[in-house]
């Protein structure tokens, strides 16, 4: 019981930090500071997810949100202005739409089972089967790996294809360094052919 109360207090505190960060990011005009604060926000989310026992999701959040996203934001800042232009007027209708959507989402969560409820549908579908039989059926000790690589193998395969297609598309759009080097220096043609 004591541990439960302490755990809830930690989560409430982290939630308060996240709300304060969100409000501050919405107000701040310096985009470099906003990128830093986004990194901190991701770290808090990762902490929250770890406390909820979703350690793999938490680490993805930390690596993507606090790691690569911050560097990508800074890269974008290097190409554009580092200060957000002040809006001429605040649109009241936009705020109303955002608040209404948020309230509807909060209303939607009322239908969900309570946090940690053992009778929730997700604990009675295929999860017990995976936990009990996956070692025998698949032969991999880690249940998460056997779910991702075998039970949902086609799903993972499709996701990998989507990521590869996105990477190829982005590389085609950005052009790569090779073509630009050739434009700058006509002699680089032979080197480019040789190394490729």
């Amino acid at each position: 019981m004591g541990t439960f109360v302490v755990g809830s207090m930690i989560e409430v505190t982290l939630f308060a930090f996240m709300i304060a960060l969100t409000l501050y990011i919405a107000r701040i005009r310096s985009l470099f500071a906003a990128a830093m604060l986004f990194g901190i926000f991701s770290l808090i989310s990762a902490g929250m997810l770890t406390l909820m026992d979703a350690v793999d999701v938490a680490f993805t959040e930390a690596a993507v949100g606090a790691g690569i996203s911050t560097v990508l934001f800074l890269g974008a800042l290097g190409l554009t202005a580092s200060e957000e232009t002040r809006p001429l007027h605040h649109r009241l209708s936009a705020k109303l739409v955002v608040i209404a959507t948020g309230l509807m989402l909060a209303w939607g969560t009322l239908d969900m089972p309570a946090y940690g409820d053992p009778d929730a549908p997700i604990h009675h579908h295929v999860a017990p089967h995976y936990l009990e039989d996956s070692e025998e059926e698949i032969g991999i000790p880690n249940v998460v790996t056997s779910v991702l690589a075998s039970y949902r193998g086609y799903d993972t395969f499709g996701e990998t294809t989507v990521v590869l297609t996105a990477a190829v598309g982005a590389m085609l759009l950005l052009g790569g360094g090779l073509t630009r080097a050739r434009d700058d220096d006509p002699d680089a043609d032979a080197h480019g052919e040789g190394s490729a």
Binding site: F32, G39, I40
Partner: peptide, 13 residues
């Protein structure tokens, strides 16, 4: 200051 705060927060996580 902000880079230091972000690094500090990472350590605290």
């Amino acid at each position: 200051d902000r880079v230091l705060a972000a690094n500090m927060f990472g350590t605290k996580t």
